[in-house]
């Protein structure tokens, strides 16, 4: 016994080393496996607030470009709107009779922290539960989809960026309607990979990729990016498509959180389906 105590006294820093490393790895694996506590992330209140200050300085410097992008996008939408109106008119229908989709609402939020150089990148925004933001809601920039909220504290929320090895967004090719999952496995922050598109699908460089609307997170038809190159998977069964993301993930500022009113219903249905299968 005395020997053990003497041993511990002599090598107590070894013991401390092992304990501290175990704590670190516990934090790492718990966080990576699934949503851990918000406390150890930049979405906790104190850290989120500090990032809020820093980003308000950065925002001010980036206002001009942000404005230009919004202006361009606005113009594009006005033109598109006019075109659709003429199409509807030419079909002999009253545009007012087409009821708007009311199942999705949005909350405006500001990005206070964001990274693109890790393998698992996250986006911190300045809206949380108090503003109605919660896990499994979509995050959209003026130019396209950017991520999915994974946890929320009362005034901040953390979202899995598209540039995260755990991210998966159900997308489709707008022209042909074939759908697959958008993933990212490191590397270039402007390019993600669209997987599981069948081999016989016709894919062209420049095709638009939009959300499929098959999950409850995003409504159908939100812009994601365009096909930049395509080939086949190693097993030859599916296409592997590189998608150039429409939003520059390194320059996020204002975003919108997309809330689906029927998300709970959606989840309940798929849960009951799972139970039914068992």
């Amino acid at each position: 016994m005395r020997n053990i105590i003497a041993f511990l006294a002599r090598y107590n820093h070894w013991l401390l080393f092992i304990i501290l490393e175990l704590v670190s790895f516990w934090l790492l694996f718990r966080f990576n496996s699934y949503q851990g506590s918000v406390f150890f992330t930049s979405a906790n209140r104190a850290v989120g607030t500090v990032y809020g200050w820093v980003s308000s300085v950065n925002d001010y410097l980036g206002l001009r470009t942000a404005n230009e992008i919004l202006f361009d996008r606005n113009l594009e939408l006005v033109v598109e709107n006019e075109r659709l109106r003429t199409v509807i008119d030419s079909l002999g229908m009253d545009a007012g009779a087409v009821s708007p989709d009311t199942s999705f609402t949005t909350v405006a939020a500001k990005v206070v922290n964001n990274s693109v150089n890790l393998l698992d990148n996250y986006i911190t925004i300045d809206k949380g539960r108090a503003d109605g933001v919660d896990a499994d809601m979509g995050l959209v920039s003026p130019l396209g989809v950017v991520g999915i909220v994974c946890m929320a504290s009362s005034h901040h929320a953390l979202a899995i960026s598209l540039l995260n090895s755990n991210s998966s967004v159900s997308c489709k090719l707008e022209r042909s309607g074939y759908f697959g999952n958008l993933k990212w496995s490191g590397g270039d922050s402007r390019t993600a990979q669209l997987m599981d598109i069948p081999r016989h699908a016709e894919v062209h460089v420049g095709d638009t990729v939009v959300t499929s609307g098959y999950s409850s997170v995003f409504p159908e038809g939100l812009m994601v990016g365009v096909v930049s190159s395509h080939g086949f998977s190693p097993d030859g069964l599916t296409c592997e498509i590189d998608v150039r993301l429409s939003s520059d993930m390194a320059k996020l500022n204002m975003v919108r959180v997309v809330k689906n009113k029927h998300a709970a219903e959606h989840v309940m249905l798929s849960d009951s389906l799972k139970r039914h299968r068992q």
Partner: peptide, 27 residues
């Protein structure tokens, strides 16, 4: 060594919290 490791752990954890990489910088 013990004191040095505790300081290192505290600093690593702070960096981790700010960069959403829990445990990595601390380890």
């Amino acid at each position: 060594p013990s004191k040095a490791m505790l300081w290192a752990f505290a600093m690593g954890l702070l960096v981790d919290i700010f960069s959403n990489t829990p445990g990595i910088n601390a380890a």
